[in-house]
Amino acid sequence: MPHHRHDPAPGSTASLRTANQQRVLDVLRGGSTGESSEETCTFTQAELARTTGLAPATVSNIVRELATVGLVQTDRGSGRRGSSVRLARGAGLVAGVDFGHSHVAVAVGDLTGAVLVEERRGFESARHDHGEALRLARSMMLAMSAGQGTIRHVGMGLPAPVTNDVVRSSAIFPGWEGVDARAVAESVLGLPVHVENDANLGALAEHRQGVGRGHDSSVFVKISSGVGAGIIIDNQLFHGSGGTAGEIGHLTLDAQGPLCRCGSRGCLEAYTSSSTVVSMVAAQLPGATLDGVVRAAQQGSLGARRALEDAGLHLGWGLASIVNLLNPAIVVVGGDMARAGDLLLESARTGLRRHALDSVALTPVLASELGERASLVGALLLAAELTELVVDQA
């Protein structure tokens, strides 16, 4: 069950001490850079003092306290304040879980959000209830963390709108509709869990570790069997008032267009999803998967190329609405469809230029750097960020 810390009284000496510890730990976890690796998350005590704004003596005391309880590890350098400091492996682990329509992916990492081990398995979510999916994730997590340490927090991504931890669409993710995903996940996994939409997690991962680094605003569009977006504004995820911002898959492009699984017509998803592209060439490439369609297009199949180009043009039309409204620095395209690369993205850029205002028509549209791992990496980063590490006050 989730651990609820009893914070010291505001303004007290204990409260200040806790806040200072948290500042140091946030820097060691990569909070100052948005990146997570042993290199970027190792600091000298002098660097910690400069980064946090705390007095060198205060930092020395905090480092000593954190080392005593096993949260940080120090390596002697030139002088006490020249020694390097990083989070100790024994401080604990976190896990990320990414559920898709046809897969479960699990990663275990350290408290900087760095992946130590990960695994992805095929799993037809539409054929199973949420309990079975969670039990599979639990068995994967236990096997992967065996002998490595204790998992303290789990980040979990779902390919559906999530409001107050409740999944709101049976059409998009059968077996989870109306489920309090956090409550059932914590019951099955026996750990604190934070639930997010998978596109939001992809946006977070690309912003911190992928092609979105260095940009304070971006939109990550995940295109697989569904279409959704995660939005970064001022370096923060934007959720909207109910938590469902970014559901661009159901922008209406043509009210007389093809029927969407949401019940409406002409949705962006109905033109650009992986299943749509596969169905478009089913007569020419019977039994082909999306990878088969991409391979055929690369080998010169006109039908396969046209299917991907048409999907890209419609994607660009949808992206035009997003960039006109939000003016992000970049748009990142991920999910299964991103494997088509420029076969999809070149026509998406064309569609964007046709429908966007001149001032934003050249917004870069780039492929995800993290690929199919983006949502999983984001889940792990979020779990690390939300794990409480402050030493309990005596």
Rank of each mutant, 00 (worst) to 15 (best):
residue 216 D to L: 02
residue 181 A to H: 03
residue 3 H to R: 09
residue 61 N to R: 13
residue 128 H to Y: 09
residue 372 E to L: 08
residue 24 V to I: 14
residue 266 G to R: 08
residue 265 R to S: 09
residue 32 S to K: 09
residue 19 A to H: 08
residue 11 G to M: 07
residue 341 G to S: 10
residue 341 G to V: 02
residue 27 V to L: 15
residue 371 G to I: 08
residue 231 I to T: 02
residue 203 A to C: 08
residue 58 T to L: 07
residue 208 R to G: 06
residue 336 D to H: 03
residue 83 S to H: 12
residue 58 T to R: 15
residue 222 K to T: 07
residue 202 G to I: 01
residue 99 F to M: 13
residue 256 Q to T: 14
residue 290 L to W: 00
residue 337 M to C: 10
residue 181 A to K: 02
residue 66 L to P: 03
residue 361 A to F: 03
residue 381 L to K: 04
residue 78 S to G: 06
residue 171 A to H: 12
residue 201 L to V: 11
residue 351 G to L: 05
residue 215 H to C: 10
residue 349 R to K: 11
residue 193 V to F: 00
residue 373 R to I: 02
residue 340 A to W: 00
residue 51 T to Q: 15
residue 192 P to D: 02
residue 73 Q to T: 14
residue 24 V to N: 09
residue 149 G to R: 05
residue 212 G to F: 04
residue 205 A to K: 08
residue 179 V to G: 00
residue 294 V to H: 02
residue 236 Q to A: 12
residue 39 E to C: 04
residue 327 N to A: 15
residue 320 A to C: 07
residue 212 G to L: 06
residue 1 M to I: 01
residue 220 F to Y: 15
residue 78 S to T: 14
residue 360 V to G: 12
residue 293 V to C: 10
residue 18 T to Q: 05
residue 205 A to D: 13
residue 242 G to A: 12
residue 156 M to G: 09
residue 100 G to D: 06
residue 101 H to L: 11
residue 42 T to H: 06
residue 195 V to C: 05
residue 293 V to K: 02
residue 221 V to C: 06
residue 249 G to V: 04
residue 199 A to F: 02
residue 302 L to I: 08
residue 282 A to V: 10
residue 190 G to W: 00
residue 351 G to D: 07
residue 299 Q to Y: 03
residue 280 M to K: 10
residue 129 D to M: 06
residue 111 L to Y: 03
residue 68 T to E: 15
residue 23 R to Y: 03
residue 302 L to H: 11
residue 293 V to F: 02
residue 126 A to G: 07
residue 46 A to N: 14
residue 368 S to R: 04
residue 282 A to H: 11
residue 160 A to I: 07
residue 258 P to F: 11
residue 167 V to C: 15
residue 21 Q to E: 15
residue 222 K to S: 13
residue 206 E to M: 07
residue 174 P to G: 11
residue 123 F to H: 10
residue 164 N to G: 11
residue 194 H to K: 05
residue 160 A to F: 01
residue 131 G to D: 12
residue 335 G to E: 10
residue 291 D to R: 13
residue 74 T to E: 15
residue 152 R to W: 00
residue 170 S to M: 04
residue 275 S to K: 06
residue 76 R to A: 15
residue 304 A to Y: 01
residue 367 A to G: 15
residue 294 V to N: 06
residue 392 D to V: 11
residue 19 A to Q: 13
residue 146 A to R: 10
residue 327 N to G: 14
residue 97 V to L: 09
residue 312 G to A: 10
residue 256 Q to L: 12
residue 338 A to C: 14
residue 290 L to E: 07
residue 354 R to I: 13
residue 271 Y to G: 05
residue 86 R to I: 11
residue 381 L to P: 02
residue 61 N to C: 03
residue 22 Q to A: 15
residue 327 N to P: 06
residue 363 T to H: 02
residue 141 M to T: 14
residue 288 A to M: 06
residue 105 A to L: 00
residue 377 V to Q: 00
residue 53 G to R: 06
residue 198 D to S: 12
